[in-house]
Design a protein around this nucleic acid. Structure first.
Lengths: 357, 357
DNA sequence: ATTCTTGATCTATGCGCATAAGTACGGGGG
DNA sequence: CCCCCGTACTTATGCGCATAGATCAAGAAT
């Protein structure tokens, strides 16, 4: 706390110049072994800890990558979902299961560490505004952001300075690097199972509107059209407002127009639908099947377990880091876009017996 | 990527000096509004992103806190545990449930963000050595480390430069700030329940040896002694080697000396014991009860659900951050040590019916 | 009218490190 | 014996920002 020792102190103690101290650490081969040892000894004795700020300033690189997460506090209410909390222990406000963001973050962490980069994590919310983002951006050599969490104008500005990877937005800003998943293929596999194996004919898509979900809806529509099946507009649920979903489903039931299967744009919505159906006394999957998309952990623990399309979440994080490091090493002419494959996870909620888990 | 604009560029464009640019951002009141606006406009037009390295160097503070986690890769095999993976989906190597470290980290993240600090996360393993730690240490204003993950000599050195909080080591280096939990009270509550309510008499403590577990064992011994019950040396399980535990338990069974209850030093061990008992055909808790310590998520999802002592994990993380920020604001004369309370979570594995979950 | 005050801005400097360019030295080849 | 060259260091400089202290203008006070 009392102002740590610097290269100057170490140099003086070792009886060499600061350049030699610097070399001793960063380019050992340029210093005779005896000299290097005396420098390292001096450093140890003094408790020298190099300043990353100074190093970053001098080198123009920080050696750290950044991940900008939106403030959990704001996401919690919707993210935790009904199924993720257990009643009496809900007081400890931890997430029972990792959600999408957590698993991706984990991939980012693992890849950063194994590649020798530090990871700077920033959080923000609507209030903290873009300050929070640029703050992180100013600290790192490359930044990973989740789609739709910060204004395009801001990411564009940042990407003029450091490489930015946007995660999972099929229609993202084209100046950014992107990691996306193959929504079309995932929906294709899923629908193939539902139509081909289960012989479902009447479907209802459930989603809140955003680019990702829209891509899924479009793929869904295309498959239905190809099979000559009727395409209805999506049932628009609202995040955190399961009551709305409940009402919509009640209407469907009253009018006798329940589908064979609810195809939900993501697992969280699917869990809400399952919950709602249970509450309404509609047996799932016996009367109505339900599917999700993402592959969050909660989906495999709920009963009936959720048939879904699984994203390689950890890989998404790892890939983002890989793109950044590649870019830093050897800047590509054009932003990279890596689309990762997804896989169908057939579980119970489509009407199949549990095959796994 | 092409070398971002600096204060000099902004100053030139706005027709002011760099000092004014700096003031416009950091001390708005010192700059006339019209000037400030023209500076901010210029900054926006140029896509100016302040360099945290330069700022950190100039101010002597980085505005970031650090958390040093050991490389997950090395912890995974033991940490994930048998119960945390589901067979056929084990290929995706994510953690099904957050473990202790995750929940603490989450607390650290939340507190950092809400207090306006960025969080630098570092990872390392035995191989990367102390370089990884000092690397992080050089980047931040304060550091949080998990007990027993890095050599005391290193933390001591670092703590000469920035405040360091060590998490949960009852016998930690006294020059460091510490956040610990009340092991004695937790064990006390637990044993009170087991002895007073369940009337168990013959106990067996299960643990791998470390300071934390020893503190728990000591508390356990004290309670038994106070009740005039026999105290046996702990059953030493080995991390990751559930076969060893199985063997030890088999021996106990053969010799007819199974206890009324296995008191495990932590939840992970308790899960292994439960698993082992199940495999051996010994009904738990009917014949032998089992308890854990920590309160990890997996413990409440397993059947029988695990009776345990719950640590306030998120709070531990938050408290560590709080200590650091306090210390930075107003350095205390002596390292702070905050001991947090724990609470008994009575579930099924002690023989009680499910009261919750 | 002159001096003091206050606010707004600028000039100059240093933070701690990396590194280009320079210096000193010693040995081998001519 | 001199020159060249490689090795092992050192000197000098700049990275981008914050900030103390200087400057300057425009009232306010005398």
């Amino acid at each position: 706390m009392v102002k740590g020792p610097t290269v100057y102190d170490v140099a003086e103690r070792a009886g060499v110049s600061i350049a030699t101290v610097s070399f001793a650490f960063s380019q050992p081969h340029r210093v005779r072994e005896s000299t290097r040892n005396s420098v390292l000894d001096a450093a140890r004795e003094l408790g020298y800890v190099p300043s990353a700020s100074a190093r970053g300033l001098a080198k123009g690189r920080t050696g750290a990558l950044g991940l900008f997460s939106f403030d959990y506090l704001n996401l919690l209410p919707e993210a935790a979902g009904d199924g993720a909390k257990s009643g009496s222990e809900a007081d400890e406000d931890c997430r029972l299961f990792p959600i999408w963001v957590d698993e991706v973050q984990r991939g980012v962490e693992l890849e950063c560490f194994s590649r020798g980069y530090a990871l700077m994590i920033g959080g923000g919310n609507k209030a903290s505004g873009e300050r929070a983002v640029t703050d992180i951006a100013g600290r790192v050599d490359g930044l990973i952001v989740f789609a739709r969490t910060i204004p395009a104008e801001v990411t564009r500005r940042i990407s003029a300075r450091i490489p930015v990877v946007e995660l999972s937005d099929p229609e993202g800003e084209s100046s950014l690097h992107r990691v996306t998943i193959d929504n079309a293929s995932g929906i294709g596999q899923l629908m193939e199972h539902l139509i081909g194996f289960h012989r479902f004919r009447r479907f209802m898509f459930v989603s809140i509107p955003n680019a990702e979900n829209e891509a899924r809806y479009n793929a869904y529509s295309a498959v239905l059209a190809a099979h000559g099946l009727e395409v209805q507009p999506p049932l628009e649920s609202r995040p955190g407002a399961s009551a709305v979903t409940a009402e919509l489903i009640a209407e469907l039931q009253d009018s006798g127009s329940l589908p064979d299967c609810f195809v939900c744009a993501n697992d969280e919505e699917a869990l809400v639908v399952l919950e709602t159906l249970k509450a309404a006394g509609i047996p799932a999957p016996a009367q109505v099947a339900v599917t999700g998309f993402d592959g969050i952990v909660a989906g495999r623990l709920v009963r009936p377990s959720l048939t879904t399309v699984r994203q390689p979440m950890e890989l998404i994080g790892r890939t983002a880091v890989d793109i950044l490091i590649d870019t830093l090493t050897d800047p590509p002419a054009t932003p990279s876009h890596r689309q990762l494959p997804v896989s169908l996870a057939v579980r119970e909620s489509c009407g199949c017996r549990a095959q796994e888990n």
